[in-house]
Design a protein around this nucleic acid. Sequence first.
DNA 1: CGTCGCTTTGATTATATTCAACAATGGTGG
DNA 2: CCACCATTGTTGAATATAATCAAAGCGACG
Lengths: 239, 239
Amino acid sequence: MLKETIKVACSSCNLRELCMPVGLNTQELIRVDELVATRRTVKRGAALFHTGEKFTSLYAIRSGFFKTGITTEDGRDQVTGFQMAGEIIGLDGIVNEQHTCDAVALEDAEVCVMPFDRIEEISREVNALQHHVHKIMSREIVRDHGVMLLLGSMRAEERLAAFLLNLVQRLQARGFSKSELVLRMTREEIGSYLGMKLETVSRTFSKFADDGVIAVKQRNIHILDADALKRIVNVPQCH
Amino acid sequence: MLKETIKVACSSCNLRELCMPVGLNTQELIRVDELVATRRTVKRGAALFHTGEKFTSLYAIRSGFFKTGITTEDGRDQVTGFQMAGEIIGLDGIVNEQHTCDAVALEDAEVCVMPFDRIEEISREVNALQHHVHKIMSREIVRDHGVMLLLGSMRAEERLAAFLLNLVQRLQARGFSKSELVLRMTREEIGSYLGMKLETVSRTFSKFADDGVIAVKQRNIHILDADALKRIVNVPQCH
DNA sequence: CGTCGCTTTGATTATATTCAACAATGGTGG
DNA sequence: CCACCATTGTTGAATATAATCAAAGCGACG
């Protein structure tokens, strides 16, 4: 039974190029397969972890879709990211040994649980893993800086266009269509992530649709003119 | 001569609690002292590194004050952070082996150059250093999420109040006054960081001054009522 | 002492928010 | 299977907020 849940080793997982370092030898592969202690399923709407919970592990998403976000005492909240298969969540918890955000599944999901002390232990022996962990954290930092750019310097249309392009690009890397996507999150969650109100998100979708750039049918988005979206993102703030 | 420039070892540096892990034994201290290859001085206005440059090292700020920022092809730019003594910069470069931002000194500065391959090597032997590196990266991620919250959910007054409180808190941790500070950056740089125009920054300073919360004399800020600033940050976005 | 970069302030305009009403959708239980 | 409800999404009108444009003031520095 337990065996059943950990049947697929990292070394034979189809997401391994996303989560794992490449170019390992047999010996190293065996070590790295020990990273994943267990699997865990998370139902839609449930949290993988909450702010304040003790940090013990990083999680590699095997299937499903998550949002992470912070909530302040005064009720403000901010979605800090949307994560899909192959991505790693929980990095925020390392510094203070407790999570600083909530991770909530936006659809039924399964994650690989990687105890962080085990990651550190195996990292000392497998150089490629050590470097891989550093790269994952650095990538998250670079991503965050990109979000700052978006929030700090783009107008609503630019933000939403950038958001759609980013999503579709990540989906494409996972073998999905580069023109069709299903949003797993509400307009409000998109708005929280992009620093705008849900009404503005809705209006902006409608405008893109009016302009023939996308077709919107609830959460199904069809990108009709990707170049137009790219042009919207790149329009320099004129005047 | 060379010896002169590396005279102060990390183990006897007065900033060591900020950059380095604590609780090392003698053996470990010796290893960790090998981290810093050289020192480098950076004149006010000069860059420590530029976007696109090959990444080789992390830098610990020994003295001075930096800004980091990204610039896009279309001329948009975003200050992603301001860094002071004891803080580490360059983490963004790990993932693609090249820097993704510019780091510019806002006053004459000196940094400790820590070649990243050496960091990884010593990390494998000194567990406390390994964990310390992970914590530093995680801390940067958490900080970035805080900036997202600020940019995504706060109004101008709230952003500037939060900015001042953050700066003064970090300065205080370094032994400076908790009520007086000298801004090393222009209104435009503050605005870029906070996602607002320089005029709005200026107006907001003036408003705080009118309200008796701070006194502003060019770049000298005197915080007269820290609690008021805290209240401004925490005011829930009413109606 | 004049120039240049930075800052302040005012008036106007652009942009997104807020408030409000209504429509569409999906899930639930009768 | 259908009706109902809660949730989510759309749209309009009024308003708040910050951006833009413009002009003038201040300070540091040569």
